[in-house]
Structures are given as structure tokens and as C-alpha cells.
Design a protein around this nucleic acid. Structure first.
Lengths: 178, 178
DNA sequence: CCGAAGTTGTTCGGGTACGAACAATGTATA
DNA sequence: TATACATTGTTCGTACCCGAACAACTTCGG
């Protein structure tokens, strides 16, 4: 999906292999480049900002979500972070071991676990996030000011078209196809 | 990064926590939504198309790259797939065990390993890829025909701004600030 | 020629990543 | 108030995922 070949070169090669099958190359290009970009940005941010603090991408996202919303139930941390609750369990254990967050059983509902930040965790985010945002700016700096909001909208549209729970205003939730 | 909160709600909460620090919220929104979209699409395609064939996302990408470019050296498979060579070793072992690809030492350079597809692997891709492309179309179907190419360009711009080999025009490669 | 320097794929260690199954807990039904 | 039903976080098994270290191999410098 990413590599030394030019776009036309790749498409020609694909046509040569798939041949008779009718394909939507525009859709293919968007999906392919979506992952290329996402991967590239994640790796870049991990290397430039996160690795110095011994943080993986996911660990940082979980930390960020906790920072913004604490105290927050684990199910919502998973939802906001975009990972499964099974994955979150491991990540939280790591972050707890490092002394950045705490787990705490809910008083009112024995099933829930509340996540809070430690002072050390807050210190880390205060030191880290400005640098992180600086790199975020760098990632989009070649994109014109005017295109930025529209870009975010396009990305949101992609997410919405795939997430059934996204509760758009009047759209019927039942999808007859597939 | 994803969840039940509205955009304004999240931003207000962020301002409340980060307060005095000057942040670029437009850049933040793009990066955040880039990962939300990428994650959502990957999970969707894994569930709707790939899981039925016992294929993970990465395994599929590697299979696709091999399909298009075989015979291909492993270093280039890793490059095209956007994963490290260390990761590729494990994925290739899995695909080889399933009988979809083969490894073969290069005659001319003893360090290289060439990857080829088996007939079973080709059959799988012929059966699989049209379904995959159909879901790709579904992912972008809410985006206007006219915006599609521009969208792909924006994604490519993001990738290019982060990959050092991508040679931005006149900017000096050394970054004085961190 | 022969050692130094570079390249390639693998191994290793630690950390995600997910679905399925699970026990603990809460809620609804009768 | 029992008995189903639903929800939550964890555990388990399997599969990624990467950087660092490594051995095998090629190429370069003298």
C-alpha cells in the first residue's frame, strides 16, 4: 500500500493481475492512502514525540482521553480511544504500573471501574502535549488553511459511513443491504 | 479520540484542561479524525470481508502486495505493506503455513528472499478482492464523486509531509527546535 | 586478496490488538 | 423474591507490531 512505485505504475500492474474484474480505483485509492497516511503519522509521532517518554501510540491516546475526561469509566475510555475493552485492560495495566493512572471500583455500580490520573500522569501530559501538538501542526502544514476543515469533514464522513451506531439525525438505522 | 461526545464538547473540555497552552485545534482535529477513520475502516473490512477467510488486515495487505508484484523481495513487501521487516517475518510465516505464499532464496544474492504466490493464494485473491473493493466503495459512497480525487490527494500530502524521503521543495532538512 | 563497512532476513523481548468465554454485578420479568 | 436477561471488566489464545541485536552475505577500500 505504500512504496516506491508511482500511482499509475501500481494501477497498471493491478489491471494486469485483476484484468476483467470491474474495480473502483477511486475508492481503492482513498482507502489505500487513508492507511498509508494513518500509519505514517502514527510512526512519525511515536518516533519524534512519544518514544522519548517510553509511550506507545495507544498508551498515549488512553492517557490523553483520561486526562481530558477523568474520572472516566473504562468502557468509555475504550470507546473514546477506539480500541476494544480487551486491549484497554492491558494498556491500563501498563499505565498503572508506570504510575500515571489509577483504577478504582465504582461505589454505585460494582461492575464499573473508574480511571483517574495521578499527578505524575498530569505532569507528563503537560510536558508532552504541546510538543505533540507541534508535530500535529507539522503533519498538516502543507495543507492550505481553507482545506483543513473540509479535510476533517471528509474523514468524519468516512468514519460515519462505517459505524452503524453513529446516530445521524433522520436516517433510518436499518440497512436493508447485507 | 472517538466517542459519544460532540466536537464542541470535546474542545471545551480540552481547553478546560490545557487552558493557557496555545493549541492548533484544526491540526488536532485532522490527526484525530485520521485515526478514527483508519481504525473504523480497518475494523469494518476485517469483519465484513476478511474474517470469513481467516485473514487479518495485515495478512491481507501482504497477500495483496505479493499478488500484484510477485516475485518480490521481502524488503519491498515490507515497504509496500507499510510494516517493519520484523513484523513481516511473522506474517509471512503465517501465510506460508496456510499455503498461500512461498519463500525462496535468491540465486544471485544470498541475503535476499523472494516471495511468490501459490495457486491457492491466487484463487483466494480472485475470490476475495471483488468483495473487498465493493466494501471500499461503500466506505466512500457518501463522498461526492468530485471530492474523491481531492481527498486522496490530501491524504497523500499528509503522508508526504511526514516521510523524510518525500523531499519537500526547499525546506532545510534540519529542524532546530527539538 | 582481505578485512571493514553495509545490507538483508530472522530472532528476541515487550507491548498492543481482538474475539470469545467468563465471573461478578445489576436489572427486568413474573 | 426468585429467575432470566443484560452489562462490565478481565482472562485466554492467537496474531500482530516494532526496535535492537544478530548471523549470513555482499561490497568496498586498500
Amino acid at each position: 500500500m505504500a512504496g516506491p512505485h508511482t500511482l499509475g505504475e501500481t494501477e497498471r500492474q493491478v489491471v494486469d493481475r485483476v484484468g476483467q474484474l470491474p474495480l473502483d480505483y477511486a475508492a481503492m485509492a482513498v482507502v489505500s492512502n487513508l492507511f498509508r497516511a494513518s500509519n505514517a503519522v502514527r510512526n512519525h509521532l511515536e518516533r519524534t514525540v512519544l518514544s522519548g517518554h517510553n509511550l506507545s501510540w495507544t498508551a498515549f491516546v488512553v492517557l490523553w482521553v483520561t486526562w481530558i475526561w477523568e474520572p472516566i469509566e473504562t468502557r468509555n475510555v475504550a470507546l473514546e480511544s477506539g480500541i476494544s475493552k480487551a486491549t484497554l485492560t492491558g494498556v491500563l495495566t501498563t499505565l498503572e504500573k508506570r504510575g500515571w493512572v489509577t483504577r478504582e471500583k465504582s461505589e454505585t455500580d460494582g461492575r464499573l471501574v473508574l480511571v483517574r490520573m495521578t499527578p505524575a500522569g498530569r505532569d507528563l501530559m503537560v510536558a508532552l502535549f504541546p510538543d505533540f501538538n507541534l508535530e500535529e501542526q507539522r503533519v498538516v502544514k502543507t495543507i492550505g488553511e481553507d482545506d483543513l476543515a473540509g479535510f476533517a469533514d471528509l474523514l468524519r464522513a468516512v468514519t460515519a459511513s462505517v459505524e452503524p451506531a453513529a446516530s445521524s439525525s433522520e436516517e433510518p438505522p436499518s440497512n436493508p443491504e447485507r
